[in-house]
């Protein structure tokens, strides 16, 4: 009689994993994930949830500008969180702005991950000159902070292409800039774990079987290096959202007609001296909550999966 060897399905493996076990027992992780999902859902459902459409000029009245949120005297009931300097409903524009910030954050991280994982895999597996060149490049880029690189690249691209062209394609530009500025983080992490995987027997076995380098790299080594990639991705999304906000705050990001959270903070800052603090501080609070829950989730993931990560 032969016993059927049962291979667990992906779902079964996930159900029995330590990750899920730990998640069920960490209330802070559950809370953070809940808040994060609420924010993401609210942002992507903005066209249905938002009371007004802030991109539609016909719905905006300049006479409604700088109205305070509901708990302050002088508030208008229609505008729960008040209005900004152009008379746009703050709640609506924040929902739309969060969507822009999230799209750029995720887009930039996907680009970073594709670049960084490919380069890290090549550097770690091929070694030699490829490794030396790629890692020297990563070192140089990391020795300037990623934010600095992003600001400089953003400034130069904007100056080359002209302001109007830049703001027309701002989302794409920001994804490219932040993606290019931060790939070394991924490359170094992946390279470190590829170096550890490379000397294992399954790689030798695959090579003896006559498989090509490309197949071994992407089909055999790559899946085993993904858990640290997963962990730094959370922190990288938070970083990308902050970088986007910083670039927008400096005027190198989203234009005010199509604002992200960063450009909302920037446009509100001009009115803080006149007492309208809510235009800048409410989007600021949303930004902080968004980044904070992602960072806390990242902390929890790192504790659970505990890969060896770079300090700092």
């Amino acid at each position: 009689m032969t016993t059927q060897l049962s291979i667990p399905t992906r779902w079964a493996r996930f159900r029995d994993s330590y990750l899920l076990y730990s998640f069920k027992r960490t209330w802070s992780a559950q809370l953070c994930l809940a808040i994060f999902l609420c924010l993401v859902l609210a942002a992507f459902m903005a066209p249905w949830l938002a009371p007004t459409n802030p991109y539609d000029l016909s719905q905006i009245d300049i006479l409604d500008s700088e109205l305070p949120p509901f708990w302050i005297e002088g508030a208008v009931e229609r505008y729960t969180l008040g209005t900004d300097a152009q008379g746009r409903d703050l709640l609506s524009i924040i929902l739309y702005g969060t969507r822009v910030s999230l799209v750029i954050g995720f887009g930039a991280v996907i680009l970073q991950a594709i670049l960084g994982v490919t380069f890290g895999l090549l550097a770690g597996y091929l070694g030699g000159r490829v490794d030396a060149i790629l890692m020297r490049l990563a070192d140089i880029q990391l020795s300037f902070s990623t934010l600095m690189v992003a600001i400089v690249v953003g400034a130069v691209v904007k100056a080359t292409l002209g302001s109007s062209f830049y703001s027309q394609y701002a989302v794409l530009m920001l994804i490219l800039i932040i993606g290019l500025a931060e790939w070394p983080q991924y490359a170094r992490t992946v390279r470190a774990s590829v170096l550890a995987e490379k000397s294992k027997e399954y790689v030798d076995a695959a090579r003896v079987m006559g498989l090509g380098s490309r197949r071994i790299m992407f089909r055999h080594v790559l899946p085993n290096t993904l858990s640290p990639v997963f962990v730094i991705s959370t922190v990288q999304i938070a970083n990308a959202i902050i970088s986007e906000a910083a670039l927008s705050f400096l005027g190198l990001g989203m234009p005010e007609t199509h604002p992200s959270l960063g450009s909302l903070i920037k446009s509100g800052f001009d009115y803080i001296q006149s007492g309208s603090w809510w235009i800048t501080l409410i989007p600021g609070a949303v930004l902080v909550v968004l980044v904070l829950v992602i960072n806390l989730l990242g902390d929890w993931l790192r504790d659970v999966m505990n890969p060896r990560l770079y300090k700092g």
């Binding site: 902050i242 705050f249 903070i265 803080i272 007492g275 600021g284 930004l287 902080v288 960072n295 806390l296």
Partner: peptide, 22 residues
């Protein structure tokens, strides 16, 4: 400290201005 990491520097600056300057 984890809250501190999550607050962008320009927002800290704005909050400081609101509290201590205005």
């Amino acid at each position: 400290s984890i809250v501190g990491i999550s607050v962008p520097v320009f927002l800290t600056a704005i909050v400081l201005i609101q509290i201590f300057s205005i």
